[in-house]
Design a protein around this nucleic acid. Structure first.
Lengths: 229, 229
DNA sequence: AACAAAGATGCAGGCACTGCAAACTTGCGC
DNA sequence: GCGCAAGTTTGCAGTGCCTGCATCTTTGTT
């Protein structure tokens, strides 16, 4: 649980209620499945009215995924503090450190959360992809950092790909029951991405049949693959 | 519109109804926004009852995103037809050719669809990420192809990253109003991924401060970035 | 203790979505 | 053509998510 440093009774209670609702939601859904649990039951378990539930979470799903928007904003702020000369991929990896720490610090909660989320793809999508505004801010920050134009595609691609890397690392972490540190799995994923996802059979070297790095295009219009009718 | 080759009147009508519903949904939501349009209104516009809408689409969202599940299955089948010795990334790029053709063949529909989807992040997530079963099948196919174990992380990472590449390419395609061919944009994205998303300031060479390709981990546990309190 | 701000709750209502049963259409064999 | 079987459409009733509004209770302050 995050520390409630220097807050009045009021805000402390709010935090408690929010945490209680989230915990109840996770526990119940883990037991019975997403649509076998009603908001009423969750509220009951947290000992508040159903109407109050919606004072804390906009949707039932939000109680399960946690504050993803807040997390994204934290990553964005962290990215600001990384020196400008650090290359893009590594900068993002560093900016993710805070979130990683939080997840590993609350391992039990997050393992349960991932277990639930993985059983309900609708939630999995919400977990990493999401808000347009913050995502766009991330793209802009990266564009400024690398000197790219915002719409030449590179920054957006990097954001999307690192998001995918984070997601797979978290899934792998949860699948293994948290045995291997999340930070380690994330480093592996980032290393593989930085290496260009080499096909292992080519010995880690970029395959010569692949398009050269700087190429803008190379005739992908044709359809060399035949699909049955 | 896809060709209704050799189908009875019945199935032809079904296709028509389905297309009418999808088109009506896209048009109305583009005009007014997602929650200013009811299923009833969509059905009205397509001249069927509201109940019938749900015979065609499980959710309102599904009418907007199109048959993503079917598309994924097609990609999966296409992957089967790519010779085993083709390296992973390129194999996936080839397997995507069929879907790319479909999108560019129905450019008007898909541009509208992307416009709508991009304005509603909930839909954007559904568009590429999604079903667990097919996604898992894709991971397994890739694992078999590359000789990887299914749970060593590499195949899942490749699937997630290429999904991200496809998504960004489609967004870029739609943002540009379809001016540049989707196939070309996708090739660019794949090329960038294959090159390891090089920070342009390092001249396309993998930065030496990055983890070496084969490394399993390198002490990412510490938190070198300070966030304000 | 009194007051103001903020939170919790109940209630009414809109809308997504589902199961069921009753029409209705279509394809097919006669 | 006729009628049957199978498939489709539709209405209806019901559940559950979610919202706006009015009211009551709690909390922090003077």
């Amino acid at each position: 649980m995050t520390i409630d440093e220097g807050l009045g009774r009021r805000d402390r209670k709010k935090r408690q209620t929010r945490a209680a609702l989230a915990a109840a939601a996770l526990r119940l859904v883990a037991e019975r499945g997403l649509d076998q649990v009603t908001v009423e039951e969750i509220s009951e378990a947290a000992d508040v009215s159903a109407r109050t539930f919606f004072n804390y979470f906009a949707t039932k799903d939000d109680a399960l995924t946690g504050d993803t928007e807040g997390d994204r904003e934290r990553v964005l702020r962290a990215l600001d503090t990384v020196p400008a000369q650090v290359p893009a991929l590594r900068a993002i990896r560093l900016a993710l450190a805070g979130v990683i720490d939080e997840v590993e610090g609350d391992a039990a909660l997050w393992l349960l959360r991932m277990q639930v989320v993985m059983q309900h793809p609708v939630l999995l999508a919400r977990l990493v992809s999401g808000n347009a505004a913050t995502e766009q801010a991330m793209v802009e920050a990266l564009a400024a950092r690398t000197g790219h134009s915002c719409d030449d595609g590179y920054p957006a691609l990097v954001v999307a790909v690192t998001g995918a890397a984070l997601r797979t690392a978290m899934v792998r972490w949860a699948t293994g029951g948290g045995a291997r540190p999340l930070a380690e799995l994330l480093d592996e994923a980032f290393a593989a991405v930085a290496a260009g996802l080499p096909d292992p059979r080519t010995g880690g070297v970029v395959d010569p049949t692949t398009d050269p790095p700087g190429a803008t295009a190379s005739g992908g219009q044709r359809t060399p693959v035949r699909k049955r009718p």
